[in-house]
């Protein structure tokens, strides 16, 4: 079994998503995670804060950042276990994040050994 990271990217949703929809997404997101966990394939996941985010460059200089564009945000990730990228992508289809127009989920395998 391999591990895949699913990265959630949002587009600017200003005014296009109602708070009721957001509430529903939050519930669906929890159900979605619970569904993956029920198959014993959920590894971990959370949102990524920009707060105190740092970038360290090749000269070991530490700067504040990265600064996710306000209009397109790397908002969170989930790590799942799957036999193939296809299976991981099937999982990705289930997240309500994708109900937002312009939002995407990037699926990448995590090299474990």
């Amino acid at each position: 079994m391999k591990e895949y990271i699913l990265l959630f990217r949002h587009e600017n949703a200003n005014g296009k998503v109602s708070p009721e929809q957001m509430q529903q997404w939050m519930k669906q997101q929890m159900d979605w995670v619970a569904g993956i966990a029920a198959q014993n394939k959920f590894v971990s996941g959370t949102g990524l804060l920009f707060e105190d985010a740092k970038v360290v460059n090749h000269q070991k200089m530490i700067t504040n950042g990265p600064f996710g564009d306000i209009k397109e945000t790397l908002g969170g990730y989930v790590i799942v276990k799957a036999e193939s990228a296809e299976e991981a992508a099937e999982f990705a289809k289930g997240t309500p994040i994708l109900m937002g127009e312009g939002n995407t989920v990037e699926v990448r395998q995590i090299l474990t050994h």
Binding site: F8, H10, N12, W25, T46
Partner: peptide
């Protein structure tokens, strides 16, 4: 608006 979207990313887990 993005602040609320971030809540969606974090609150379901935490």
């Amino acid at each position: 608006s993005e602040t609320f979207m971030l809540a969606l990313d974090v609150w379901p887990f935490k």
